[in-house]
Amino acid sequence: MSELRKRLASWDSIIVLLTVFVLVVASFSVTNFGTSRNFTFLILDLLPIMLVALPMTFIIVTGEIDLSVASTLGLASSIMGYLWNQGLSIESIIPICIIAGAILGAINGFLVTGLGLPSLAVTIGTLALYRGLALVVLGDGAVADFPFSYTGWVTGTIGGGPVPNVLILIVVLAAVFGVILHATPFGRSLYAIGANAQAAHFSGIRVARTKFWLYVVSGAVAGLVGVLWTLRYSSARADNGAGLELAVVAAVLLGGVSIFGGKGSLPGVLAGVVLLAALQNALRLQDVSGQALNIVTGALLVLSVLLPNVATSIRTTWQRRRLRRAATV
C-alpha cells in the first residue's frame, strides 16, 4: 500500500513538475506566451475542460466514465439559444440550463445504476442522443444576440487586469471538489467504490446511489459550462463543444487518475488540464494548426497510461532479476 502511495505521489509530482517546466520554457521561448493578454486567453481556453474535468475525476475514480458531457454541453447551449429566442430573461435561462444538464445526467445515472448497464456504452449512446436532440432543438443555425452585460462578464477580467472573472469560478469549484474528494468520508468512499465496488457495498457504502448523484452533478456542471461557452463566444450552437469529452478524459488520465478506478488526485488533474491547455496554447502561438495539435493530445492520452505501466513492468523485471541473483549467491 505504501509502495502504491509512493508511486501515486511520484506521478502527481511528475505531472506538476512537467506542467511548471512547460510553463517556464514556453514563457521564455515562445513569443507572446508570457504576456498577461495570453494568460487571460489561456484561462478562458482551459475553463470548459477544467470545470467538466472536476466531476469527471469523481466518476472515473469510481471506475465509471461519462462520455456524454460534451453533448450535454451542446444541448444546454441549444436550449439557451432556443429560450432566448422565446424571449425569456437570461436570469431564468441560466438555472433552467443547469437543471436541464442535471436531468440529462440523471438519465445517464439511472441507465448505469438503475438498469446496471455499462457506463461506456450508455454514455456513447447518450453522446449521440443528446447531440442529436441539440440539433433538433436549434437546428444548424446560431443564436448570437446575447446581452453584453453577460457575455462581457465571461470574457472580462477583474478590474481590467490580467485575471479573468471566470478564474474565480474555477478556483471556487476546484476547491469545493478538492475538499470533497480528499477531506470527507464521501470522497474516501469514492476510492473504495473504484477499488472494489462489491467490498464497498458490503462495508455499507451506497454504491448505486453515490454513482447516480455523480452523474447528476456531472450533467449539471456540463450544463453550466454550456451556458459559459455560449456566453464566451456569444453564440448558441448545437455543435458547441463537440469532441470536448476526449480532451477532458485525456486531461483527467494525464493527471494520474486510473481508468480502472480507485486511484488519482484532484491536484494531479488540475495540473493535467493546465499542461494540456498550455501545450496547445504554446503550439498555436507557433502557428501549429489546431487540428495538428490533435497528435499531441492523442499521444499524451496514450502515454499517460502507457508510461506508468512500462515503469511498473521494468521495475518488476528488475526486482525479479535482483531476487534471482540474491538466490544464486
Binding site: A292, L301, V302
Partner: peptide, 17 residues
Amino acid sequence: RVPALVVTLGTLYMFRG
C-alpha cells in the same frame, strides 16, 4: 496493457491529426 478505450481514443486524435 493500456485499455482499448484509451488507446483508440488517443489514436482517434493522432491519426486525424
